[in-house]
Computed example of a mutant assay.
Amino acid sequence: MTTATQSFVENPWRQGAKDALPLLGGYIPVAISFGLFSVQSGFGILETILVSVLIYAGASQFLFVAMVVSGAPFWLVIVMTLLINSRHLVYGPNIAPYLQKDIRWLPMMHLLTDQIFALALTRLPAMTPSARLSWYFSAGMIAWVSWISGTALGAIAGDELMQRWPLIGEVLPFALPALFLVMVLPRCSDRRWTVTMVVATASAMLLKLFGFPNIAIPAAAVCGALAYYAIQQSPAKKGAAS
């Protein structure tokens, strides 16, 4: 057993907190931006915080608020929110092999975000089954609470912050994507992940360029997943043929 694995076994709670702390640098700024945007759009402070508590989905929250304010039908708001979050259909099967058959995992899927997924994909395989639940809960809760706290700060004091430091408004939207990119890039150490990242990124950019921004993220996730599995299956097919 390696030293790293031993530390996971001894204190997965502490390791989860340690792994999640860097996420605060991306979560809190974007959450502040959302809190300010929501209040300026006409939502109350409590309503804004509840959106982060219950939806907790980054871009989907911005879309949710914008569509509600614009008077879009409620069914369309739900459909579009689910469409943007459909990338979780790709996330789930990738971490499912590391989850025990424990009903406690079900409610904790609310804590699954892009960044927690990236962490889990790296950390869970290195842990014993008994340590995984504690690590995931610790990391997920820290991320969730930081998002809610940032939202509350943006809703209550975001306008004053922007007036004092206007540059913050220009930087906030890039904090979370930059953090996710930094976390995912180390995974591109082999051909499968490199091609997956290139295909997903190119798909998203092309869809936005041709005027389909609402489906860019879920479509890019599907394209990236298909590319990954196509490359993963190709050696098996060659082996079977030989």
Rank of each mutant, 00 (worst) to 15 (best):
A4T: 14
A4E: 15
A4C: 08
T5N: 13
Q6V: 06
Q6T: 13
F8I: 01
E10R: 06
E10C: 03
N11K: 08
W13S: 00
Q15D: 12
Q15G: 04
A17T: 12
D19G: 04
A20W: 10
L21Q: 03
P22E: 15
L23M: 14
L24S: 07
L24I: 15
G25S: 07
G25N: 05
G25R: 08
G25Y: 09
G26M: 11
P29A: 12
V30P: 02
A31F: 12
A31N: 08
A31D: 06
F34G: 03
F34D: 02
G35L: 13
L36R: 02
L36Q: 06
F37W: 03
F37G: 04
V39F: 04
Q40C: 02
Q40D: 09
G42D: 12
G44T: 11
G44C: 06
G44P: 04
I45K: 02
L46C: 03
L46Y: 02
E47S: 12
I49A: 07
I49H: 00
L50G: 01
V51Y: 03
V51R: 04
V53D: 11
L54K: 05
I55P: 01
Y56K: 08
Y56A: 05
G58P: 05
G58L: 07
G58N: 11
G58S: 15
A59F: 11
S60H: 07
S60I: 08
L63T: 09
V65H: 01
A66S: 14
M67C: 11
S70G: 06
S70P: 01
F74K: 04
I78R: 02
V79D: 08
M80H: 01
I84A: 07
N85P: 09
N85A: 12
N85K: 13
S86I: 06
S86L: 15
R87E: 10
Y91L: 06
Y91C: 01
Y91N: 02
N94H: 12
A96D: 11
A96F: 04
P97E: 02
Y98T: 03
Y98D: 02
Y98V: 03
Q100P: 01
Q100F: 02
K101G: 04
D102L: 09
W105P: 00
L106Q: 12
L106P: 00
M108W: 14
H110Y: 10
L112E: 11
D114F: 10
Q115F: 10
I116E: 09
I116S: 09
A118K: 07
L119R: 03
A120D: 09
L121V: 11
L121T: 10
R123E: 13
R123P: 00
L124V: 03
A126F: 10
A126M: 15
M127P: 00
P129H: 08
A131F: 04
